[in-house]
């Protein structure tokens, strides 16, 4: 695939990073993503296979980090699994061979734009964007929420660290919303 040059969700060759005041927004293009949904009545098989393969399957509203696989809960008996893109670009195939027919697996890598948010405290930013009670939820909290009409997944890694997955086609609108809120908050 050497001949095809990928573009980032923001239409660039390289990932974008933006800083405003204490906040840094970093586009992450190095994350491979796939959905894993248990087949009906196969949760036990999936759990066993996942454990063996080192794929975490955390409980509701939770993200669990691991190497190489991290994952967060998105729906009943359904997760998004993350892995490094460089080694796991074919994440769906890799997971299929690891988890067998106990799960339905779908590549999601390019369905999303990923932004890492970093600041001392993200609460002033996020309270202008979504209804998540960011200061109150624990680290590792993962939820779907809405920011400026866009459905996004928000994963809290700390009071000043979060990962955001937004719809890839609206990457520019989402970044604009983040920057606008940042100028308002900081």
């Amino acid at each position: 695939m050497a001949s095809l040059q990928p573009l980032t969700a923001l239409g660039k060759r390289e990932a974008t990073a933006v800083t405003h005041g204490p906040l840094t927004i970093t586009e992450r293009t190095d994350v491979a993503l796939a959905s894993v949904a248990a087949r009906k009545g196969r949760m036990a098989d999936l759990s066993a296979a996942a454990q063996k393969a080192g794929v975490p399957l955390p409980g509701p509203a939770t993200h669990q980090a691991g190497i190489p696989y991290s994952a967060f809960w998105v729906a009943p008996e359904m997760w998004f699994v993350e892995a490094p893109h460089a080694t796991h670009e074919l994440i769906a195939d890799l997971l299929k061979s690891a988890l067998g027919d106990a799960a339905s697996i779908t590549e999601q890598t390019d369905a999303w734009v990923a932004f890492d948010l970093a600041a001392t405290d993200l609460a002033p930013l996020l309270e202008r964007l979504c209804n998540v009670d960011f200061p109150a939820v624990p680290n590792g909290y993962a939820t779907r929420t809405v920011m400026e009409h866009l459905g996004v997944y928000l994963v809290k890694h700390g009071p000043g660290a979060a990962r955001l997955y937004g719809p890839r086609s609206s990457a520019e609108s989402l970044l604009h919303a983040l920057e606008t809120a940042a100028h308002s908050a900081f």
């Binding site: 949904a37 248990a38 087949r39 779908t106 999601q108 890598t109 369905a111």
Partner: peptide, 15 residues
């Protein structure tokens, strides 16, 4: 609810 079906949107995943 008894059916073994899983759904996920891939609209944006593929050009």
């Amino acid at each position: 609810p008894e059916m073994d079906v899983q759904l996920i949107s891939t609209t944006e995943a593929w050009a």
